[in-house]
């Protein structure tokens, strides 16, 4: 069973009095452990699709299934819980909480759940993540004291702290230099392989597309390519 399924998902926006069809009926199945790249030029609808998968935007019509369950009729509270428990986010602009330290930013999602408490198991997991993303020496730093690459590493650790089944990454390398971008991609690939976490990217970056084992190409709100490659 697909971990995420989009069925005839459409998204229309009103731009003044004009209806903009950002996504025109998309069917995508994403399997657990996929390292999937949703690629396409600007305006092709990739970010909109990522937002719908991430439950931060609703399809105008069609349905998004998460772990086999439809989401269109869920209330805000249920959608929020599902986002918290099931999905991790990595943003193009990192989106760290500016007043929190590296460690606090990573811990932050744990304090948003139904049991907002940090246990020893949580602490061990956070320590492991910090070690994995190589930020041991920057725990007390605030985001504005870190480089772009370091910030994105914090964002990756934060996305993984709740052990989500799916991580959504919106152009994660767009604001990074090529070397740092590659390091970040390697890190995400490693986590994908080690933890079987599903990674879904929206990207222009060919390196990500090359690294992906599932590629969805979009053009003008429609899927023009949906190919799977054997896992490397």
């Amino acid at each position: 069973m697909s971990i995420i399924q989009m069925s005839q998902a459409k998204k229309h926006y009103m731009l003044g009095k004009t209806v903009v069809e950002a996504v025109k009926g998309v069917d995508i199945n994403i399997e657990a452990g996929d390292f999937i790249s949703i690629a396409g030029p600007s305006g092709s609808g990739k970010s909109t699709i990522l937002n719908m998968i991430g439950l931060i935007d609703n399809p105008t019509s069609g349905e998004v299934f998460i772990d086999g369950n439809p989401t269109a009729s869920l209330k805000d509270r249920e959608l929020t819980d599902l986002r918290h428990d099931f999905i991790g986010f990595i943003f193009q602009s990192f989106n760290l909480i500016p007043v929190l330290t590296v460690r606090e930013n990573i811990e932050f999602p744990l304090l948003l759940g139904k049991k907002p408490k940090i246990t020893k198991a949580h602490r061990d997991w956070i320590d492991f993540l910090i070690s994995e993303v190589g930020l041991k020496d920057h725990l007390a730093h605030k985001p504005n004291e870190l480089s772009g690459g370091q910030r994105q590493r914090v964002a990756i650790a934060r996305a993984l702290v709740t052990k989500p089944q799916v991580v959504l990454a919106d152009e994660p390398t767009a604001n990074l230099d090529s070397v740092t971008g590659e390091q970040i991609l390697d890190l995400m690939k490693k986590i994908n392989r080690d933890m079987n976490t599903t990674f879904i990217f929206s990207t222009h970056d060919n390196k990500i597309v090359e690294l992906a084992d599932h590629v969805v190409r979009l053009k003008d709100g429609l899927v023009i390519e949906n190919t799977r490659r054997p896992r490397v």
């Binding site: 819980d81 918290h84 428990d85 943003f91 989106n95 909480i97 999602p109 948003l112």
Partner: peptide, 16 residues
Amino acid sequence: TGEIGTMRALGAQKGF
């Protein structure tokens, strides 16, 4: 709004 949106995306309920 960006910070609040991020918190909401990460799973912060409106009560938070």
